[in-house]
Write a protein that binds this DNA or RNA. Structure first.
Length: 156
DNA sequence: GCCAACGTTGGC
DNA sequence: GCCAACGTTGGC
């Protein structure tokens, strides 16, 4: 099993939104970065665990855990001219952008803010805290997975 | 709102 | 294939 971190702006789609979805599951659409897409397509597997991260908000933080419950399939909002994620270069015949389904597992009673992650020496290697790192889907090591759970007062 | 860092685009 | 210009991300 692999571990990941996925960013979402809570104003757009928060962990509470995920928990409120039918089956507490949602297709993770809108990924428009090749590296992130390739992680989904080539490395993410059903059963993998995901940190749900709130970005571009007052307190950026890891706020909970989700699970990958599907393989990738076309992100059809790329075909919708009305969508903010519209990309005319993606077609139903040759889908450029993909998504997969994420299922809510838990919300941390106390979120782990970015500033705490930054100040923890054991997490200095996390992609999240690397200068200029903007990837919205990132791999997380098992050590990092456990440490952040520890900081949240949760058991992995 | 600012701006550093990064990815993408497109002319050459 | 280079690289300048541009757009986006995302913390602050």
């Amino acid at each position: 099993m692999n571990y990941w971190l996925m960013k979402s702006e809570p104003d757009e789609f928060s962990i509470d939104d995920l928990a409120a979805r039918p089956n507490q599951t949602e297709g993770w659409n809108g990924i428009r970065n090749y590296q992130a897409r390739n992680f989904m397509r080539d490395a993410m597997q059903i059963g993998d665990r995901v940190f749900f991260y709130h970005s571009s908000c007052k307190v950026p933080a890891v706020v909970g855990v989700a699970e990958v419950v599907s393989g990738t399939y076309p992100d059809e909002c790329a075909w919708d001219p009305e969508s903010p994620y519209f990309d005319p270069k993606s077609t139903p015949e040759a889908a450029r952008w993909l998504k997969l389904d994420i299922h809510f597992l838990k919300k941390f009673a106390s979120a782990v803010p970015l500033c705490d992650i930054k100040s923890h020496p054991g997490l200095a290697d996390m992609m999240l805290v690397q200068k200029g790192s903007r990837l919205s889907i990132q791999p997380v090591t098992e050590i990092q997975w456990q440490l952040i759970h520890q900081m949240a007062g949760e058991t992995p």
